[in-house]
């Protein structure tokens, strides 16, 4: 109990000591300020008597004002530079954010296109990309018939596939786009076009130089009034990746069919 009281007493004493030191510091500071004030008052009184001293004090003060103004200007310039830099960073952030979103769309499209080797699934993925990522309302996916070399409509959205004509490579906007291997966008790049009118966008699907198929977009969703930079990136992505997906799925199904035939022969010969 007595030890506790002693410790408490020590703590109170230490608080008092610190208070005393603080008061002492304050008194000292007060004294210094009083001396400085007296000095200034003395200089002002002297200067008021002596015009030369007055002029000296005046010049000194003017110099100080000037240097403060220079400092003020410098700070303002630095603030402006920081604000400009901040604006640039904000702009860059928006750009990076947009780029990030675009890359997400491209990644998802590419990932989905290569996620299956089933030809009908590949077509389903292409349709999903064209609706969900591009925002097309009426469009058709064509595949090149290997025997005739003609573009055959195989899947569509917004209109029955029977409404879309078979197209010869090199004929019409779509046929020419497939022949040249270049995405063709009609002007103006909005509004709706009937299947017989020719597409708004013609996307050739080619593996290296070999035409595999095409996508013809005839109209966009009501809320979509034109194409963005991302849409053009998606056209290019589809032109390459959708083509390889269709090609790979076709080869896979052919090899599967051949394998089944060979297996059938083997079974026939061995049983």
């Amino acid at each position: 109990m007595s030890v506790k009281n002693y410790e408490r007493g020590e703590a109170v004493l230490s608080i008092f000591k610190r208070g005393a030191e603080f008061t002492k510091d304050l008194l000292q500071e007060n004294e210094q300020l009083r001396v400085r004030l007296l000095n200034i008052e003395q200089r002002q009184t002297d200067a008021a008597r002596d015009p030369e001293e007055w002029e000296k004090l005046r010049n000194e003060l003017l110099g100080k004002i000037e240097s403060l103004e220079v400092e003020n200007r410098d700070i303002r310039e630095r603030l402006q530079a920081v604000e400009e830099e901040n604006g640039q960073f904000a702009g860059r952030y928006v750009e990076i954010e947009e780029e990030n979103n675009n890359l997400a769309n491209l990644y998802v499209a590419s990932y989905q296109l290569h996620s299956t080797l089933d030809p009908s699934e590949v077509l389903k993925v292409i349709i999903e990309i064209v609706i969900n990522l591009i925002g097309a309302e009426v469009f058709c996916v064509y595949v090149v018939d290997e025997r005739s070399g003609i573009l055959e409509p195989v899947a569509s959205e917004g209109a029955p596939v029977s409404q879309f004509p078979r197209i010869e490579i090199g004929s019409g906007a779509l046929g020419l786009a497939v022949q040249d291997g270049e995405v063709a966008v009609a002007e103006p790049a909005a509004g709706a076009r009937a299947p017989e009118e020719g597409p708004l966008v013609s996307i050739p699907l080619r593996v290296q130089e070999r035409p595999v198929g095409a996508i013809a977009i005839h109209s966009l969703l009501q809320q979509k009034d034109g194409f963005t930079a991302l849409d053009y990136e998606l056209f290019t992505l589809l032109a390459g990746h959708a083509a390889t997906s269709i090609f790979a799925a076709r080869l896979h199904s052919q090899s599967k069919r051949k394998l089944n035939t060979i297996q059938g022969f083997i079974d026939l010969l061995t049983k």
Partner: peptide, 12 residues
Amino acid sequence: DSPTMRQLLVFA
């Protein structure tokens, strides 16, 4: 129902 949309939504 679209896996493409689901993947994009999950990403976001």
